[in-house]
Write a protein that binds this DNA or RNA. Structure first.
Lengths: 138, 138, 138, 138
DNA sequence: GTGGTCTAGACCACC
DNA sequence: GTGGTCTAGACCACT
């Protein structure tokens, strides 16, 4: 894994795990790599991994059992919370990037709507005409 | 600059220059660093830079004058094209990421609308009450 | 200050500050010693102090401003929360110690009631007869 | 063992031995370590240990047999006396600490009663439902 | 083996 | 000066 110098490594590790969870690659209750293993894999100091794990435990995302390992919490609603949080940060970054191109709120809204509409068309088109000439417009 | 292993470096260099252009950090007609300079700065093989420059010249984005250097094209409408292209790729990535969280088109639409509405509220709020208790709702 | 080997130092620092706050020696909004100062005073590594400060910030007890220092939060109700928390831990320890002497719940209750009653008597006694023969019974 | 700078060490040694007695770790009639041994173990001057032993002998807690060593007294009722004394000092400290948080006698009384009641509930709960959802209320 | 704490010392970002 | 992050390496407690 590659780290971005602009943000703390421990935060990137947190996000890495959250994304795995949101994508279903990690299941609630599942054991995650030990601090030492993760540190070796990411080529990072074990203390940095611990910081990430500890913060996630404080947030109720992980549960640690001394001598046994660290586990994804199986608190109900966990997955939903994480997805909402990730969606929020993706959305935020998206809007910042679009605005930096000089787009107005109305333009952003229209572009999103177009893109989603075309996605829908794409699906229905595919259903009717699997190998047809149905193409996105841009 | 950091490169992402998932895509060819020359493409990332192209995107890097396009973004500078979209943000106004580079102006049409302006000279950009020589291939050797750019290669040294990015710590990349000069051939990689050359490939990026060549493709951008093909696309009408750069113009090379033998013995003088490489310049941002002066073609009218260039900036707009680039912005549209960048907006398209940002939008595409955004929708892929949101979908990977399991969100439906309707949900994405609603989230974007909410976020943009709140941005507006934030602005008016700020105008009236610069350090007030104006907070985002989520 | 002396540290007890049985509990982590950072937790003892947290308790130290909480007690100062409960006793009114620290006021909400007040600046507390910098991490380095506190570390020098307590003869502890700055990282250990930082851990204590960070956890207290997470709990909403402190607020840190980069480049300026660390401050007692002035969130309303803060003092009350801390007092309740401290009272809980004092009470817990008290009951454990009393039980380890083999005392039953009823006996503990009676002893506490006696002690508080005598405290009251002591006060009224003192008011009537400042240098009298008013003595505790044990 | 750790010593507290606020009180004389010999008193802390006395309390240390009394607590061991109250907890049953020392039995009436049992030989305790020699002054030299105890001094070495606690890393304290032998004179300090001697002072503690002497005071406890005066109180009838210890008995010294020249050439044989120092023993816990066999006097009947000794254990009970010690427990009462320790309970008194624990109680005193408890009330001082609670008062320093600004709690009134009534409040202290209520908190103690609550805590003891919940302890009872906990026990019955445990008896019926060993791993159930029985939780303290604060 | 696991996680938890602590130190020493480095470098950074902010004010 | 302040707080924030990171490393390297130590020792401990638990299973």
């Amino acid at each position: 894994m590659q780290f971005d110098n602009s943000r703390p490594i421990y935060m990137q590790i947190m996000e890495f795990i959250k994304k795995q969870l949101a994508r279903g690659e990690l299941q609630p209750g599942q054991k995650i790599p030990s601090q030492r293993e993760m540190a070796a894999e990411l080529q990072v100091n074990p203390n940095t991994v611990q910081r990430a794990y500890r913060e996630m435990e404080t947030m109720g995302l992980l549960e640690t059992l001394r001598g046994q390992g660290t586990f994804i919490s199986n608190r109900p609603g966990l997955l939903q919370e994480i997805k909402v949080e990730l969606a929020g940060s993706i959305l935020k970054r998206f809007i910042v990037e679009m605005r930096s191109l000089g787009l107005s709120a109305v333009e952003i809204r229209n572009l999103v709507n177009q893109a989603l509409d075309q996605e829908e068309e794409g699906k229905s088109c595919k259903a009717i005409n699997p190998r047809g000439t149905c193409q996105p417009h841009w």
